[in-house]
Amino acid sequence: MGVLDYLRGFRVTFDKLFEERVTTEYPEEKSPKPDRLHGRHVLNRYEDGMEKCIGCELCAGVCPAKCIYVRGQDNPLDEPVSPGERFGYIYEINYLRCIHCDLCVEACPTQAITETKLFEFSFTNRSDAIYTKDELLVGDDGLPQNLPWEDWRPGEDVATSAWMRATSPAGDADYVGTVGWSGELGYGVRAPEVGQFGEDPEPPAAEVDPVDEGGHH
């Protein structure tokens, strides 16, 4: 132990000046968002434009934070909103309570509610935090609505519903990699993940030995 030990330590920090930066210049530059990221929810439509939500309230029932308020109603006979008898008449999510666990996405029987990758939104008052059906429903082109206080970037709306696709086999190996969902307006039928059977059946041996000469003290 001597002065040199001090200097060695300072050398580590000094060398960082010349090493590659790991900082991402946020918000101009954003880290790429993985497929399964849990963000703000959207209510999807079928490829023919009809809403998928049937107002069944399963999402409200499973939500551990009790942040979803749904009421169903009969489809008006002349202008049905969703295929079938029932549609989601009132649909609100309170984002001050939502913990983004996406149990609602797993519970929805029609894949109506899925989540986008957007988590960059903030409000200045509580009522803005309660997203109503108008704000959650995708537009006529199937794209999520870009509300004024949300920071959407190009390409962020593409990889939605990934969590629903990831959990769709529900643990059963036979259903890994199979499609079990309907098409979404604007995106068609999304591809499933390749899954464990699409990977290399022989996993490569790990070559890294993390116990190096640093070793134990």
Binding site: G55, E57, A60, G61, R71, G72, Q73, D74, R86, Y89
Partner: peptide
């Protein structure tokens, strides 16, 4: 009562 609520509400 049609579609008005669910038991957990």
């Amino acid at each position: 009562y049609r579609f008005k609520a669910r038991p957990w509400d």
